[in-house]
Amino acid sequence: MIEVQNLTKRYGATIAVDHLTMTIEDHHIYGFLGPNGAGKTTTLHMITGCLAADSGNVKIDGYDILRAPLQAKSRIGYLPEQPPLYDDMTPEEFLRFVGEAKGLRGKKLRTAVDSVMERTSIADMRRRLIRNLSKGYRQRVGIAQAILGDPATVILDEPTVGLDPLQVTEMRTLIRELAQSHTVVFSSHILSEVSALCDRVLILAQGHLLAEDTPEHLSAHMPGLHRLIVTVRGEPDAAVSRLRQLPDTTVVILSSTGTETQIQLESASDRRESVSAALAAAGIPLLGMTLETATLEDVFLDLTRSETSEEFKEEV
């Protein structure tokens, strides 16, 4: 478990991380989400001890990262945004070096290195120089380095940046596999990735934690975002005038071909029943209806827009 309390970091006059408090529980995949410059990397750097905080503290399984760095650091594996690799070594040599630095020796070291190479599928490349590896493989070596020594928590900073679509899929599979035996925290600014992988989302903007919840909860709590697309037979006028009579609903005509009309309704709650009843009462044939609930994208945009974020924080 990682406890972060009142973490603050200033770079000159700008505050990168501002009194951040959060808890990362064991056995979850956490998505650390935020626009560029939100303070994600700075926060991860402080959690892993690469950077010292101006104030506040970080505890890993109860060990303070600055006061008991060795115990704290042996419980986390970290892959920074740029995989920290020595180009003049082969993955096997590099992992042996990291393993030894993490205190593994002899047979233990050999089996640990073999097992992480197996898990990250880099065993075929073990004798090539890291310099000659593709970006995807370099990232894998980076992850192998992080999980070496079996730390309880693995922290990955933007692990899919710069990978091609196939490599991104492979990386996501790898992250899911890692989550079976480790707590995984990964940062990203790609929303679909976070909603596909995580069971917890932390949203960060301008150094503040804006929300912390499951992706489903965040979407469900999103106000004013039940969007209904209704397709009806015939001209729009009759249908629109009928639907406008529904309370608290905005109605917009999306398209009309003369024989078919598509209308969008936005309301605070699910209005499917009242819409179908109203149309049936007016004798307008209903051809189709789709309900779009808020995606994580909507939540994210809404939260990071500063004027609305405060109210939403209270509501959540």
Partner: peptide
């Protein structure tokens, strides 16, 4: 320059 300093800082080493 190679960002391996982050590796050195994050490993359990004095």
């Amino acid at each position: 320059r190679r960002h391996t300093s982050e590796l050195l800082y994050s490993m359990p080493l004095r």
